[in-house]
Design a protein around this nucleic acid. Sequence first.
DNA 1: GCTTTTGTGATAACACATTATCAATTTTCG
DNA 2: CGAAAATTGATAATGTGTTATCACAAAAGC
Lengths: 135, 135
Amino acid sequence: MLLCYIEGMNSARQTKQRNTIIKEVVSAEGPLSIAEIHERASAKVPRLGIATVYRTIKALKEQGRVAVVELPGEEPRYEPVGRGHHHHFRCRSCDQTFDLEVCPVGVPQGTMLPGGYTVEDHSLTLYGQCSTCLA
Amino acid sequence: MLLCYIEGMNSARQTKQRNTIIKEVVSAEGPLSIAEIHERASAKVPRLGIATVYRTIKALKEQGRVAVVELPGEEPRYEPVGRGHHHHFRCRSCDQTFDLEVCPVGVPQGTMLPGGYTVEDHSLTLYGQCSTCLA
DNA sequence: GCTTTTGTGATAACACATTATCAATTTTCG
DNA sequence: CGAAAATTGATAATGTGTTATCACAAAAGC
């Protein structure tokens, strides 16, 4: 299955379900889980099946248009590719996940840590209160 | 069910299974998954059932003697409590998880990030090659 | 508009990690 | 040691997230 929302030149069909799902993922404040996508898209497409969300995300993944984001102890989330290196903030009140601009990790690639660990990459999740919940 | 390895004064019984499991968790280089505990303990207690590992870890958790460690996209791991704030390194070659001493995250508790996110805590996982695999 | 082809929704099937069950074994303690 | 009680191992049952199935609906192209 292919999707044509962006490339516009393959055999997949445009449906309101797919377009809505893609729009939700692209316009979200951070990566969304399948359940979150389903909730949001259902508001615009009543009776949207969860299987359609799985199918669409799977296709977008295979096309390299969305990436999986794994947070500790959470279900996989999905975000559009091309956002570059960034991290995530999780609000403990509303349980929303937000993209962050900052990277406060002082261990560049190639660093060797005490113990002989050579760092290639890192994954950081910050936890706290978002501005809405703090107010 | 209670375990008596450390406290020594409750009704639970000493078994080679439990003692072995606890020893493996305590002496490990980092947090272990159920499967990893089972593998290692099986070497010392042949025919050790996976259910016994689950049961023992569950009891230790309820006693507050082991803590759950969640890494992105991984099964839960377990480590003894009382190691304080620390992070983990995952070797991409041998897939082992190691405790780290360092905390290279420059976002102390209470920091407010651009976007109004107030930080309470963080979780960092470093990825790369351990010294053994690099050699 | 009509036909062909693909997509959808409901749900069954599946995969996997975890827990419950229970007869047999082991530990504890008199 | 011997009896009572707790633990174990094997496996069935469970829960949950994901995929497959299939009749019906919708999109694309003539």
